Amino acid sequence: MTDNQNIDALSRAPGRDEVLPFAVEALDVRGRVVTLNDSLNDILARHQYPKSVSKLLAQAAALTIMLAASVKLEGRLTLQAQSDGAVSLLVVDIRAEGGYRATAKFDESRVAEFDASGETEVGALLGKGTLAMTIEQGVYTNRYQGFVALDGGSLEEAAHEYFLRSEQIPTRIRLAVSEVLTRTDGEAASHAWQASGMMVQFLPQSSERLAQRDLPGDGVVDETYLAGLPDEDDAWNEVRALIDTVADHELVDPELSSQRLLYRLFHESGVRVFDPESVEEGCSCAPEKVSNVLEQLSPEALAESITDKGDIDVKCDFCGRQYTFDPKEFAKPS
């Protein structure tokens, strides 16, 4: 645990993938800062997506990992976006043990049109649809699902809407992704991605300071509803104002550590950072899991899956691993 006195001695290690928890007790705020480097690059290198899709998936990965860290995950958390946009599906899931993985499905021609348009907000690739968060904490707990509509805005905006509707905890989120190009004399330039995010939540001990108006019965959060909300707490107003000063380049600056950034924001109130939690990428696919899925298929569906070589080939959408099975393994007794 680190406080204002020795925070200046800390620096951001290159290639580190971590979540840094912090607290500003004077303002009743807790939060997380996530930094993704090597793990993110391993995932994106396998997929070879267009840059705009890679950037969107990187944002989703940072958001998912922050969400998982905020709920003390013991099982699995999945963030899934489905839309009518150029990117029709976006999935990131993270397990308490085993790391995170990510994948996307998209229309190549529509993504190319987006890239040619010069649009910089990659959230627009999602169009209209639904963003869902699913938490599975274990065998003996109920699965939780929360949903929010997508309307072509940023993932940050969708996340804020989710917390307003589902959690009703004052929350502020920032996401940033950068491309890093390095060149050594006589060698071709190397390319890497970095994603960072910051999430702060207002969690006062007094429940009265969290008082919020119930959501309308029709679920429509319009100007009338917003006008009737209680006045926000002064401490939370201060935090929001500070978070809104954070520029994208500060979140992804390799020379500016997460600790230094937090100190810049909250040194007057006093910020406390805790031990960072490492983040790894990893896929949970396995031959027995794929086999179990194939066993549930009808004979007709299995027959349609047989290749010209007489095998059944299955490729994991997350890690690209290829599995080959003999159709005879799944023959149903007559």
Rank of each mutant, 00 (worst) to 15 (best):
A9P: 02
A132H: 09
E97F: 00
T64D: 14
R76M: 11
D222Y: 02
D107T: 07
S39T: 08
G118H: 06
L63T: 07
E161M: 09
Q137K: 06
L40F: 06
Q205S: 10
H267V: 03
C283L: 01
V91M: 11
G31T: 05
A116R: 12
G153P: 04
W236D: 04
K72M: 00
Q145K: 11
L251E: 02
L36Y: 04
C319F: 02
A104I: 10
G85Q: 10
L67W: 08
A60T: 04
H191N: 01
D218M: 03
V139D: 14
P204W: 04
Q80S: 14
L302S: 08
N237C: 12
L27K: 06
A159P: 06
D214W: 01
F202R: 00
T35H: 13
T184E: 13
T182R: 02
K315G: 07
Q322D: 15
N4P: 06
S278T: 04
S88Q: 14
N37S: 15
R110E: 15
S190E: 08
G129N: 10
V246G: 05
Y225C: 02
F114A: 03
V139L: 15
E300H: 09
E157R: 07
K332M: 12
A124F: 04
E288V: 07
A104V: 10
F318P: 10
I243R: 02
Q59G: 13
R143W: 02
Q82V: 15
L164V: 08
A45S: 14
L63R: 05
L56K: 04
D275G: 08
D275K: 06
L40I: 00
R16S: 15
D234R: 05
P230N: 05
E179I: 00
W193I: 00
R213A: 08
R32G: 08
L56W: 06
G228I: 02
A227T: 03
A13F: 06
A331H: 02
S166F: 01
Q205K: 06
I65W: 06
L175V: 00
F325T: 06
Q296K: 12
A9E: 12
R321V: 08
I65R: 03
A62K: 00
A188Y: 00
V290H: 02
G99Y: 06
A60K: 00
A301L: 11
E255R: 09
V111P: 09
D185T: 02
D248K: 03
A176Y: 01
A112R: 11
S334L: 13
T78P: 07
G228Q: 09
L73Q: 00
V180A: 03
V111E: 13
K309Y: 11
S291G: 11
A23M: 15
D275L: 09
L10A: 13
D107W: 03
M133K: 11
S269I: 00
H47R: 10
L131I: 12
R172N: 09
C285V: 01
G310E: 11
V220W: 04
R101M: 12
Q80R: 15
L203F: 03
Y225T: 00
A116S: 13
G282F: 01
G282Q: 03
A247W: 01
G186L: 04
Q82A: 12
A211I: 07
Y100A: 10
L210Q: 09
D42Q: 13
E255Q: 13
P299M: 05
D248L: 03
Q194M: 05
H267A: 07
Q212L: 09
K328H: 12
Q259P: 01
E161D: 15
M198H: 00
A69M: 01
D311S: 14
A58W: 08
S278H: 08
L89D: 14
G282N: 04
V246C: 08
